[in-house]
């Protein structure tokens, strides 16, 4: 067999393998979209669960997840962005920067169930928040922090040094330059970090298991110290512990579809912003 012949065979195999990766994604998406669409209607997203979650809607889970997204981002986004700014604009290369970066990387690698344990030990037990939206939001916020820091850093790094120099040459202070020159330019890219971490936060189950998630709670949370249902945990409950699996399945498909839609929309927006940025540049 000639080398060329061999190459074309191997390339064919590689092509098939990589296309099968794409196929896996579409298989999963397709499976859930097809089954989920038969269930989803206005009632499904706007009603309380009924008959032991077998009928009715998933409104409290949707609201709970939205609250968790909002809560975690209110906490993590400002801190993450400020941290990214400090690391890129102020910290010089040295042991300090290496240390902070190592810690950020480590935090990113901590398994989500460990976040759950930690959130329970600190927020629920030590600070006596109890199982509550605030405990869950803070736990999820800590989990999202590394993503936001990293995207902020990348966004700031990609800004040409001439912007900073021009601003300094006009007599602007460092802080003024960051606030009025650097941040506006970097903002769209920082926003992608926010959106991607929203996608991540909305799907995490393990960190909320012991910090906020309620098995079944047919009312909307009224304060940040309330327990709440959440989409990913609701899906887990529907998929594994229903009394009647066949009746719970459609509900599970619908919940999975809503979850996937959130992630999908977040990814589309982030990609859109990136594309728009590239066009502008």
């Amino acid at each position: 067999m000639t080398a060329r012949r061999k190459q074309s065979i191997i390339f064919l195999i590689i092509r098939i393998l990589s296309l099968s990766v794409v196929a896996i994604l579409f298989l999963i998406l397709g499976f859930i979209v097809v089954h989920g669409f038969q269930v989803i209607n206005w009632g499904f997203v706007s009603q309380m669960p009924k008959e032991g979650m077998m009928e009715g809607g998933i409104l409290p889970a949707i609201v709970g997840t939205l609250c968790l997204i909002a809560g975690s981002m209110i906490f993590a986004f400002p801190i993450g962005v400020m941290s990214g700014i400090y690391m890129n604009e102020y910290l010089r290369d040295g042991w300090m920067k290496r240390f902070v970066r190592l810690m950020t990387d480590n935090l990113a690698g901590v398994p989500s169930i460990v976040f759950g344990l930690f959130g329970m030990a600190l927020f629920v037990n030590k600070l006596h928040f109890g199982d509550s939206l605030i405990a869950g939001s803070l736990t999820l916020g800590l989990l999202a922090l590394p993503v936001i820091i990293r995207t902020t850093e990348e966004a700031l790094k990609s800004i040409d040094q001439s912007y900073r120099e021009a601003s300094f040459a006009l007599g602007a202070s460092k802080l003024y330059t960051i606030k009025n020159v650097i941040l506006p330019v970097a903002f769209p890219n920082i926003l992608t970090g926010l959106i991607l971490s929203i996608g991540r936060v909305s799907g995490e189950t393990a960190p909320i298991l012991f910090t906020v998630a309620a098995y079944f709670l047919p009312k909307l949370p009224s304060s940040i110290f309330d327990q709440a249902m959440a989409l990913p945990y609701h899906l887990y409950v529907l998929a594994t512990s229903g009394t009647d699996i066949t009746k719970a399945r459609p509900m599970a498909y619908g919940t999975a579809l809503i979850l996937i839609l959130i992630v999908l929309i977040c990814n589309l927006i982030a990609n859109g912003i990136r594309k728009w940025q590239r066009k502008k540049a």
């Binding site: 990589s18 990766v21 794409v22 896996i24 994604l25 999963i28 998406l29 499976f31 859930i32 989500s112 991607l196 996608g199 991540r200 909305s202 799907g203 995490e204 189950t205 393990a206 990913p232 945990y233 899906l235 887990y236 998929a239 594994t240 399945r249 599970a252 999975a256 979850l259 996937i260 992630v263 999908l264 977040c266 990814n267 990609n271």
Partner: peptide, 24 residues
């Protein structure tokens, strides 16, 4: 085309993977 597909694969929540695994 592939890049966003891979990114999306990373974005799907683990509980959805678990659900897919359970039913398929």
């Amino acid at each position: 085309i592939m890049k966003p597909v891979i990114e999306l694969l990373a974005g799907i929540p683990s509980v959805v993977y678990g659900f897919f695994g359970l039913v398929v």
